[in-house]
Design a protein around this nucleic acid. Structure first.
Lengths: 262, 262
DNA sequence: ACGCATTTGTTCGTATGTATT
DNA sequence: TAATACATACGAACAAATGCG
């Protein structure tokens, strides 16, 4: 991998990679710059919510043109890792201090019913334990590794709507307690960012329909057997590293999961 | 709306819009070009699967630089309306002849079970009828307007998995019959493109969990009361015009609805 | 209130690289 | 090999939004 800072291209559009090798590991300059920016994000050089250096500064730093930096930043912004604001700068994406809370929550409320009342969070449990086999598998842990297990309920307009069971690799979240979760104002991923330095940048969800069992029914205040949406989310940080497994059960009598296709 | 072909910008970056009006209807050049390309797509000047003119040709036609055309095309490609292929050209997106069939179907199969067997479609019904009130509302029709109602079942590896009820504005789909649907090889939206000139470019889905009633249970071969995924899709053509309402019920015992968050 | 500096956004032009036919 | 088309990269200038003095 030819570092751009090592081999500044000569005035014209000279190729950057070693021309000897015919193919396997070539990538355009802007992709290399993108990787370097990503590395700085991952290393914590710039923190969530902060501005990164201006395009001109980055161009000088990497010894490339502003346009090349621009294309790299464009892609990172398209992936929601960066946020561009004209006249102000380019900022590291964050789950905290965001206009719309819950960047990853795709729940919307029925128009016929409640006009988005307040949202409360209720933490039922937060304990350290050995990873269950299935959890360990998807989080790429060994079975004996410890995880933090969290159970919580989200209420909208006073009604329980979401029951979440969450598993996190314990080493990354030392000191996480129900108290800290309850005290924190704002989304859980915001807490993870600021207190534990773990940034969720992407997630995959698998959605199914299931029946409420007795326990779940009591927590969500529905009749046993009520159909619920099962949302299994695997969330990733930089480098496609899975750092959270979340199994959610959603009441969909007054809410629905919205999705856009294109 | 200042047409770019009317007022070619002077050598430097001169403003294009009438400077008298202080605000409401200004847009960057590339956005105007994007609108013009969109108009040509909508008018059918280029058909799905076909190549549009080269960037250089478009630049000459609209009297702008290649870079400006490029930015317009980039956005249309990002919205999946166009498809760029290096060395070959830029093509109008299509639902037919696509590597992955069913561009809009987010169903994936459990790894533990079947290795993606063949998919069969079974059309149970296709009739013309007055639009039900709720259907008319979301399709922006008057209650007396006619719609085509289609009911079908999708089978994967021989098992019924999806039951779809579909409503289409009848005037746009004259001559649509169960026979034509059955005969056509490939996705339904491919048929709509080639036979009726209706192109689905975007859709919104609302997902809930529901119980199978007697009728549905029989069709999907599950026990009554089985939880099913309810997927209500509203599909749009150019200009954000809704042209299809689809209510799907998915068995999620061997499949799941997958979604990516970022 | 005004203007200035900073930063991203837009637009042009040119040249070269890579993929396809 | 040559022609064509998209992809990358540079440079330059001006526009628009923001914040500060």
């Amino acid at each position: 991998m030819t570092a751009a800072s090592e081999t500044p291209p000569a005035g014209s559009g000279a190729p950057v990679s070693a021309p000897a090798l015919n193919a396997p590991s070539f990538s355009p300059l802007y992709q290399q710059i993108k990787t370097l920016i990503l590395r700085s994000l991952q290393s914590g050089e710039w923190r969530p919510g902060e501005a990164i250096p201006s395009e001109i500064d980055l161009a000088a730093r990497f010894k490339v043109s502003q346009g090349t930096v621009r294309k790299a930043v464009d892609e990172l912004a398209a992936e929601n890792l960066l946020l561009r604001r004209q006249g102000k700068g380019t900022f590291v994406a964050t789950h905290a201090e965001e206009q719309v809370q819950y960047r990853f929550l795709r729940l919307a409320s029925d128009p016929s019913t409640t006009a988005q009342g307040s949202t409360q969070r209720e933490f039922l449990d937060c304990r350290r334990m050995p990873a269950p086999a299935d959890v360990a598998a998807v989080l790429q842990l060994r079975p004996e590794d410890a995880v933090v297990e969290v159970r919580r309920v989200l209420h909208f307009s006073g009604q329980p709507v979401v029951l979440d069971d969450i598993w996190l690799p314990a080493p990354l979240f030392k000191g996480l307690t129900a108290e800290r979760l309850s005290e924190y104002r704002g989304p859980m991923y915001g807490l993870f960012e600021s207190e534990f330095g773990v940034r969720m940048i992407r997630a995959e969800e698998k959605i199914r329909a299931v029946s409420a069992d007795e326990t779940v029914a009591a927590l969500l205040k529905v009749a046993p057997g009520t159909p619920l949406l099962s949302v299994e989310r695997l969330a990733f940080t930089y480098g496609d590293q899975p750092v959270e497994l979340r199994r959610g059960l959603y009441r969909t009598d007054r809410h629905y999961y919205r999705n856009e296709l294109s």
